Amino acid sequence: MDFMRLLKSFEEFLYEIVSWIVFYPVTMWRTIRHPSKLMRYADVELLDDDEDRYSDTLSPPLFLLVTLLIAHGMELGLLRQSVVLPSLLSTDANLLVFRAVSFSIFPLLMALKLLRHAGTQLDRKTLQPPFYSQCYVAAPFALGIDTGINLMRIGAHVPKLAGMAVLTLALIWYVTIETRWFRRDLGISTGRAIFMVVVTILEAAVVVMLSAAIIIYAAAPRAG
């Protein structure tokens, strides 16, 4: 009986992993083509029963995690041999966890800012819908940022220019989508929405850089 239960669990796990091959590109395409629509979809799906949620896409946090895993794989193929990392980030697992937490800061701060300006009380239930919505659009943004940085680090002139272009496009796309989101949900002007988005992105970048600095400091050898 235990063996059959284990076999059934493995069967479900295998199907789930294989289904990502289909639903990951579907989710990425829908996010890039209709980001605002998919963000609303993320909110609505949370109202369904657990087994019925995100039946035709990957769930937002999983989508972000798989995207970061793909970006990590791309870096391994391009640069990993020439990159020196702190000891705490020297393993693939630790580096992937750090990236996942770092890029989750962006949807988290965006969601927190929306709740604060909307006057909504902060708790686990109110934070989840905007955070899930934000995870969808954070994934292409993270992939674009990671790809752009990796291209720039190759060293040749053409990859550097391509990397700068990818970085710029990813940032413009992200700012545009977030501006529309804040403007719609808060009923504010475009100018104020842009200001809120830019400030939030800078805040998230500062948090990520401070976290990286702490890790580097903690991993640095001590004299004596």
Results as ranks from 00 to 15, higher is better:
M28G: 01
V166E: 07
M4W: 08
P129F: 03
A156V: 06
F10H: 09
H157Y: 10
M209F: 15
L167I: 04
T176H: 11
L151W: 05
C135R: 01
S211V: 13
I70A: 12
R192G: 04
E203A: 14
T31N: 04
V197S: 07
A213F: 04
L210F: 14
L122K: 04
P107K: 09
P221T: 00
Y217A: 15
H117Y: 14
R153V: 01
A213K: 02
L64V: 06
I215Y: 03
Y217M: 09
P60T: 00
S82K: 10
D2I: 09
S133E: 10
I105V: 15
P61C: 07
Q128M: 11
A219G: 15
P35V: 10
G77E: 09
Q121Y: 10
W29M: 11
K113N: 13
K37V: 11
F103E: 01
V208S: 03
H72L: 12
I105N: 03
R40N: 13
T179I: 08
T126S: 15
I145N: 09
T91L: 02
R153K: 01
L64S: 09
W20R: 13
L202D: 04
I154E: 03
E11Q: 11
F63G: 00
F13L: 13
T176R: 13
A111N: 03
F98G: 07
V197P: 04
D49M: 08
L161A: 05
A204D: 03
V207D: 01
L210W: 06
D43H: 14
L114E: 15
S9W: 00
K8A: 14
F3S: 02
D52H: 01
Y41F: 14
M209Q: 13
E45K: 06
A219E: 06
P159E: 03
G187P: 12
M164I: 10
L7I: 03
V197Y: 02
G155A: 07
S104L: 05
W181G: 00
L95N: 11
H117A: 07
L161D: 00
I105C: 14
D56T: 12
L95W: 07
R53K: 14
F3K: 01
S211Y: 05
A223D: 05
F131K: 00
F141G: 01
A142G: 02
Q121N: 10
P130S: 02
F13D: 11
R99P: 00
G187V: 13
G224C: 01
A223C: 05
A162E: 06
G144T: 08
I214R: 05
A138I: 01
S102E: 01
A223H: 05
R183Q: 15
A204Y: 04
L202A: 15
L47W: 10
V197T: 14
R192L: 09
T57R: 06
